[in-house]
């Protein structure tokens, strides 16, 4: 398997930012109470991580080691603010629903972590692929959790009622403890996928890519 493809695939399961690296959890647990929020947050976060990793990778040789953190924060904050403004202007409903979590992407550990661990060392193409992989890995776990929590906890999917009239929503699932439970289930699901993946031909250890 080519090295580039494996860079991209790492973030999906093997190094899933939520289920394996386990960073950026607080906003993930907080926004997954409804699917629309989950999708909005994932898209916003994927855009910010791709743009930030690309820019930082391009400028990586110009960023002095001792002030890399403030520079990373400036770049991430700039992109997050852009997303925030664009959402306020063109998707006001979504922006209202997401509330404070969009500005909080600035301090999302996944972006900071990948920028520090990957983009500040690798080239722009690899960094973009890494960011896309991480973004998609974040997306599937987030949207999956949101689907489970919204259906069980509210009886709806994307706001449409799908459960029978008689269904009494289990409020537990939209509350934080339910979030932890569903998250734990997704960690185990990811472990099963990871095991299957590593046994399949796709998961052949790659001397260069599999870090």
């Amino acid at each position: 398997m080519s090295r580039r493809l494996s860079v991209f695939l790492q973030g999906l399961v093997i190094e899933n930012p939520l289920a394996v690296i386990m960073i950026g959890l607080c906003s993930a647990l907080a926004v997954t109470t409804s699917v629309a929020n989950g999708i909005g947050m994932s898209l916003a976060m994927t855009f910010v991580i791709v743009a930030s990793e690309l820019i930082i990778s391009l400028f990586r040789k110009l960023i002095p080691e001792s002030i890399r953190m403030p520079i990373f924060i400036i770049v991430i904050a700039a992109f997050t603010t852009m997303v925030d403004l664009v959402m306020k202007a063109y998707f006001p409903e979504l922006s209202k629903a997401m509330g404070v979590f969009i500005p909080l992407i600035v301090v999302n550990c996944i972006i900071m972590g990948r920028v520090e661990a990957f983009a500040s060392k690798e080239g722009p193409l690899d960094s973009t692929l890494d960011a896309l992989g991480m973004g998609l890995g974040y997306t599937w776990v987030l949207v999956g959790m949101a689907v489970v929590r919204e259906i069980l906890g509210n009886g709806t999917l994307l706001g449409f009622p799908i459960m029978p009239e008689s269904y009494q929503p289990i409020l537990f699932f939209v509350l934080p403890p339910g979030g932890f439970l569903v998250f734990a289930l997704f960690i185990s699901l990811n472990q099963i996928l990871k095991k299957k993946w590593l046994e399949s031909p796709l998961g052949c250890p790659d001397p260069e890519g599999g870090k």
Partner: peptide
């Protein structure tokens, strides 16, 4: 270092101003 930081901040500002 200060000048470099200021340059990055200036670029980010310019981008934000456009958006």
């Amino acid at each position: 270092l200060g000048v470099i930081l200021a340059l990055f901040a200036g670029l980010a500002c310019a981008g934000l101003a456009v958006v």
